[in-house]
Simulated scan of single mutants.
Amino acid sequence: MDIFQAVILAFIQGLTEFLPVSSSAHLVIFPQFFDWPDQGLAFDVVLHFASLCAVIIYYKDSIVLLSQDFFSSVSTRKMQGDSFLAWGVLLGTIPVGLAGLFFNDFVEINLRSFHVVAYATILFGILLGLSDIVHRARDINRELIRGSDILIIGCFQALALIPGTSRAGITITAALLIGLSRKLSIKFAFLLSIPVITLATIMKLFELTNEPQQVNWLFLLLGFAIAFLTSYFTIVFFIKLVERIGFLPFVVYRIFLGALLFLI
């Protein structure tokens, strides 16, 4: 991997991790299409850690309040403030954690292909568009999350193991379908990304200890900086854009991308 490839891959990770367009799809497509060498586990870990830092910093105020209410609910054994949302982030991570534990090897061996990515990109893109249409037609904008919401969104998130699905996209889709407001749907989806990305990073770190390799610290630092800045500003851009015009641009992009993959 040269410095140009490092910059491009870091930019792609930062741009697509929190957009409903699937970061895994883009990170599968670019290296294969241009016949780039594998970027290595160390670089992969750094990019994921950069995205994790970006979402934590963006939601730092909410995370502090959620943490305070969470520990208060544990000590008093009563839900208070945003403690239920905090519990929701933890409990909503269980389905994808179990799915990753049992099906990760199957996904890696059988589903990381252009055809799977293409089908998933189009299918789940259309589903995102339909969820937005249904959401607007019903005019339901709940600002409170319930136990059943956590279960449904958590199960939908497990589908993100399929390359091309988009973890952000599928969780937002589920949230819109069950009637949560756009604002809460996006916030809960991004908060859910924190434990998921943390678990993925830890897993890759364990793999890295078993597969020692040479580390180019310049590439790692550059990749972190680009992925972090791109991730942070993508979150800001995405939230403002969706508030103004909805999810249609991302639906159109996903259909176009999936069609392009079939042509390739």
Rank of each mutant, 00 (worst) to 15 (best):
A10H: 06
G14V: 03
D44H: 03
I56P: 03
A54N: 02
I57M: 15
W36F: 13
A54T: 02
F11V: 11
D38R: 12
G14C: 02
W36I: 05
Q5N: 04
L9R: 12
V7K: 04
E17A: 08
E17S: 09
P31A: 04
Q13D: 09
A50I: 04
Q32M: 11
F18E: 08
P20F: 04
G40D: 10
P20R: 03
D44A: 04
V55I: 13
A54D: 03
F33L: 15
L15S: 13
D35Y: 11
S24K: 01
V28R: 11
F34D: 06
A25M: 07
P31S: 06
F33T: 12
P31D: 04
F11K: 06
V7I: 15
A50Y: 02
L52M: 00
A25T: 13
E17H: 11
F43R: 00
I29N: 05
V28M: 13
D38W: 10
L52R: 00
L47C: 13
Q39M: 07
I12D: 12
Q39Y: 07
D38P: 10
I12P: 11
I56C: 02
P20M: 02
V7C: 12
A42G: 11
I12S: 08
H26R: 06
D38S: 14
L9G: 08
F34S: 01
F34N: 04
P37C: 13
A6I: 15
G14D: 02
A25H: 12
L41W: 08
F30G: 03
W36E: 08
T16C: 12
V7W: 08
S23H: 01
E17L: 10
F43L: 04
E17I: 12
Q39T: 03
A54C: 05
V45Y: 01
I56L: 02
Q13I: 08
F30T: 14
T16G: 12
A25C: 11
T16Q: 10
A42D: 09
F11N: 06
V21N: 05
F33R: 07
L15I: 13
I56W: 00
V28W: 13
L47T: 10
F4W: 14
H26E: 07
A10F: 05
C53N: 02
L19I: 14
A6G: 13
P20N: 10
F30C: 05
F43Y: 01
H26P: 09
A42H: 12
L41K: 12
H26V: 09
I57T: 14
V28I: 15
G40K: 11
I57L: 15
S23I: 03
E17K: 07
D35F: 11
Q32I: 10
I57R: 07
L41D: 07
L52C: 01
I8L: 15
Q32S: 15
I12M: 09
F49C: 03
S24V: 05
S22A: 14
Q5H: 07
H48V: 04
V7S: 13
A54W: 02
V21C: 03
H26Q: 10
A54P: 05
D35M: 08
A54L: 04
V55L: 02
V21T: 09
V7H: 05
L27P: 14
F34T: 05
D44L: 02
L47M: 09
V45W: 00
P37I: 12
V21L: 10
Q39I: 03
I29W: 11
P20Y: 03
S24D: 06
I8A: 14
V21W: 06
D44S: 03
Q32Y: 14
V46N: 01
F30I: 15
E17C: 11
